[in-house]
Design a protein around this nucleic acid. Structure first.
Length: 852
RNA sequence: GCCCGGGUGGCGGAAUUGGUAGACGCAAGGGACUUAAAAUCCCUCGGGAUAAUAUCCCGUACGAGUUCGAUUCUCGUCCCGGGCACCA
């Protein structure tokens, strides 16, 4: 063998071998247990970054580990290929989104292959393939049939100058990112998915998903936000309309001193008196203008305006003024809030600002709140006061009593409320899945008949960046006959939110080429659920919740039979790195920055996050460069060894050298010893002490690495353990009769490292005299006998401080351990002339003497 | 404002159930090999006292508490990161 480790040749060689042998093909009919491992598929931006390397290296460790353990592993890869960047690039570089996307896919596939990731490439697909999105259109039609998709009016960010809808991320400080004009809200008819129908099931699922990180479940629970409360009806004074409010605090009803409506509330306009008209209109205009800005910049001053109307508190018949307030949201509850300034901080601030009355109705235990003296609201529990017949009740009891009272009076009822809102899926963009709907003047919104699917996204469009959707200008696309009445009609020109594609792709991998339906139920039931899903924490709520929702929908559509898509979830931390942006061209790659200026427009770039790193450019890592210099194995090892997967990480290149050096050390350990161990005799007892020790280290390492990978995902400590074993091999005294122990240690190192650095391991496995891939050698198991030791070192503490150590036989009893501890030289100095009050012995660990 | 995380050497990190704080690696310093360099191998490496690899003191953001014993548990404070739809 070569005495020097040179990754270049061996990596290409083994990648070719795996391809030819179809080593990573998932078997459809196998006697082995299935294991479906999935990493969140990438958006084909054109180049991989260290975040990808980290994500896919983590996944590949698990895939190879499970394969070695004997599972039939499904480990697919594909492309989340629709989205805005392709449209932006097309406008920028005068190309077509499809061309840009497919070229990027080709380039990224090459880069991923170069890392040696163990994918079953035969299952690859891109979501922009008509063969994928046609089935998404079908699923939409089925959802429509079941009432799970519907249309309603909703507001969007609108730039008047560009005549286009803007995504939240295209709005910068309330202004359009291209032309810097202020962004306004505009109402549009849009399609929605009824995710709220599944709110309870999605919430209940969070208790079943024991393989998910608790913090992700907590975020999803908060997002669904189920709360119990009371809906109360306030009649409008001198009119027939009613205002309905939702509150979780019916116990504070007698403290309501005014009513706050969302500016968009349907009654808002009607209740305005002539006298107040000008003031209210100005306020509504201001809120419309500012809403998104404020949402982005955070803190907002509480503002409102009096409508001139009053409504009646159903509890005591008191009239209270009706205000419009900027902090009341139409999307949550009923869009109206009964304001109780004494016991709600927002209402309190509002009341003080507009000089509205504050009435205390809850007294804290032992407290004596006086409305005039309060400086903030009291939101805690206590006893009711100023509440008529309910005075003296505990406020928790009062919640039920008052709800009951309102129910009797037909003025309210107990309700459940959710924060979760339906999912708006319409996007006024070109590069996405066309929504299969036709609008007919006489028949309305007509679904495209199934046999006419797919509605193909036309490829002969011009992207200019000018106003409106390119699809709306494509005459051949929009003009179509109504499927119902045959009259000329118009196609829907909106496309789906790209989250729709990523909500069911994991199921399609089970049957990527199936051409009769979205899913082959048998194949899907065979592979799903995904046993382990891996991806960034930034998807903790939206993507993961939508995928769970779709799974339940597809189940109810009888397309598959699982309730939850992902059994175990690993959320990897964010990879922080230097980010630079140009005010014109957005986020830039390092190579798009020349001397601190954007390479497109030569304007100076702004630096984002991790300032410390931004100052020295040498810290930025390009994985392609890393692989070219050190090889894929080193890049993989580096990204896994730097920190545990869940942790956020700021990369810097320090440490890469060390990983490369370690692989060289492994290589030499084999090449230096290969001559000796080839002819080594089998192990015969009694073993020498050195050989016993090395064997123990070998089996300890197997145990440690296995436990670190399986379930714990602590790859950094697993690698550290193998490093220790390699150090032990180097330190081992070379004696001919002990060579079996060296051989065992080396073979173990190669097999344990294979999930992390597969290329070098395949090569070394062959050098060690094996003829099959190390992948099929199986995962090593540890011998409990080999782990045993005869003696053990115990720590002796005096009052909790370490004062000495004793070496004892493993099976020493408590008495002899304590006797030895008292005899220890340094310990004697501390107990001399003092009294030992207590002795605590922790088996296998320590003895603590309590002395005074 | 609300929700979720986090804070350990010069650096990345380790300590799995409350039991020897700093594994492993990087950087740094010293040495061996070499004509030389690279590569490699060996040693030292939290701070302080000390001649000392003996021993002692301090030390896991800060302040309390529980405990024989706290990086780990509880309470409070400060700081950093992430998410958000002002959630009534």
């Amino acid at each position: 063998m070569e005495s020097l480790y040179s990754p270049e040749q061996i990596e290409a060689k083994w990648q070719e071998y795996w391809d030819e042998q179809k080593t990573f093909r998932a078997e459809e009919n196998s006697s082995k247990d299935k294991y479906y491992l999935l990493e969140m598929f990438p958006y084909p931006s054109g180049r991989i970054h260290m975040g990808h390397v980290r994500n896919y290296a983590i996944g590949d460790v698990v895939a190879r580990f499970k394969r070695m353990q004997g599972y039939n592993v499904l480990h697919p890869m594909g492309w989340d290929a629709f989205g805005m960047p392709a449209e932006n690039a097309a406008i920028e570089h005068k190309t077509h989104p499809a061309k840009w996307t497919y070229e990027n896919i080709d380039s990224m596939r090459k880069q991923l292959r170069r890392i040696g990731l163990s994918y079953d490439w035969e299952r690859e697909f891109a979501t922009c393939d008509p063969e994928y999105y046609r089935w998404e259109q079908l699923i939409f039609l089925k959802m429509l049939e079941r009432g799970l998709a519907y249309k309603k009016s909703s507001s969007v960010n609108w730039c008047e100058d560009c005549q286009t809808v803007l995504a939240n991320e295209q709005v910068e400080e309330g202004a359009c990112w291209r032309c810097a004009q202020p962004v306004a809200q505009q109402q549009l008819e849009q399609w929605f998915f009824k995710i709220t129908d599944y709110a309870d099931e999605l919430l209940e699922g969070t208790d079943i998903l024991t393989g998910w990180p608790e913090r992700v479940l907590a975020m999803q629970r908060n997002w669904i936000g189920k709360s119990y409360g009371c809906e109360i009806t306030f009649p409008v004074a001198d009119r027939k309309e009613n205002i309905r409010v939702f509150t979780t605090r019916p116990d504070t009803l007698f403290g309501a001193t005014f009513m706050s409506l969302a500016p968009e509330h349907p009654l808002a306009d009607e209740l305005v008196t002539d006298q107040q008209r000008d003031e209210v209109d100005a306020f509504i205009a201001e809120v419309e203008r500012q809403e998104k800005t404020d949402r982005i910049s955070g803190e907002v001053a509480k503002k409102g305006v009096f409508t001139g109307s009053y409504c009646t508190n159903p509890a005591d018949g008191r009239k209270i003024p009706v205000y419009l307030a900027n902090f009341v949201l139409m999307d949550y509850g009923t869009g109206a809030v009964m304001a109780v300034p004494a016991h709600d901080q927002r209402d309190f601030e509002f009341a003080r600002q507009y000089h509205l009355p504050v009435i205390v109705v809850i007294q804290p235990p032992g407290g004596n709140l006086v409305a005039e003296e309060m400086t903030e609201a009291y939101a805690g529990s206590g006893t009711l006061v100023n509440s008529s017949d309910f005075d003296g009740l505990d406020n928790e009891v009062a919640k039920a009593r008052i709800t009951g009272f309102l129910t009797e009076q037909d003025a309210g009822r107990r309700t459940v409320n959710y924060r979760l809102r339906d999912w708006g899926v319409s996007r006024q963009r070109y590069w996405g899945t066309p929504i299969p709907i036709i609008y007919c003047a006489s028949c309305g919104a007509v679904p495209v008949p199934e046999e006419q699917l797919p509605v193909l996204l036309p490829t002969d469009v011009e992207l200019t960046g000018a106003g409106g959707s390119p699809l709306a200008r494509h005459q051949a696309f929009i003009h179509v006959d109504c499927p119902t009445c045959g009259q000329p009609a118009r196609r829907e020109t909106d496309t789906f939110d790209t989250f729709v594609e990523s909500s069911w792709y994991f199921a399609r991998y089970a049957c990527p080429h199936y051409d009769k339906a979205p899913l082959d139920r048998t194949a899907v039931n065979n592979w799903l659920p995904v046993d382990q899903y891996i991806g960034g924490i930034e998807h903790a709520v939206m993507h993961l919740l939508y995928a769970r929702f779709f799974t339940k929908v597809l189940r109810d559509l009888k397309m598959m039979d699982v309730d939850e898509p992902f059994t175990h979830l690993l959320t990897q931390g964010m990879v922080c790195k230097e980010t630079q942006r140009c005010s014109e061209h957005g986020w830039l790659f390092p190579e798009q920055v020349k001397e601190g200026c954007c390479s497109f427009c030569n304007q100076p770039v702004e630096l984002g996050r991790t300032e410390k790193m931004s100052k020295s450019k040498k810290n930025v890592i390009d994985p392609n460069q890393l692989i070219a210099t050190y090889g894929a194995d080193t890049a993989r090892l580096f990204s896994l060894f730097a920190s545990p997967p869940e942790k956020d990480l700021e990369w810097n290149e320090q440490g890469v050298e060390g990983c490369y050096r370690f692989l060289g050390r492994v290589w030499r350990a084999v090449s230096d010893n290969i001559g000796d161990i080839q002819g080594a005799a089998a192990a015969t007892a009694p073993f020498s002490e050195a050989a016993t020790d090395l064997r123990r280290k070998t089996h300890q390492t197997i145990k440690k690495v296995t436990e670190d990978i399986d379930g714990r995902f602590h790859f950094n400590t697993a690698i550290a353990a193998v490093m220790e074993l390699v150090n032990a091999i180097y330190a081992f005294p070379s004696r001919q009769e002990d060579q079996w122990a060296v051989r065992e240690a080396l073979e173990t190192v190669v097999r344990l490292l294979n999930p992390f650095v597969p290329h070098i391991c395949e090569e070394l496995w062959q050098v060690l005299g094996n003829h099959q891939s190390v992948e099929v050698s199986g995962w090593p198991s540890w011998d409990k006998e080999a782990l045993k030791t005869e003696t053990i070192t115990l720590v002796v503490q005096i009052n909790g401080k370490v004062r000495g150590k004793i070496v004892m036989p493993v099976d020493a009893d408590k008495n002899s351990i304590e006797a030895a501890a008292l005899q220890e030289q340094n310990v004697q100095r501390y107990i001399d002339g003092k009294q030992v009050r207590k002795i605590i012995t922790v088996p296998g660990r320590l003895v603590n003497l309590v002395v005074s």
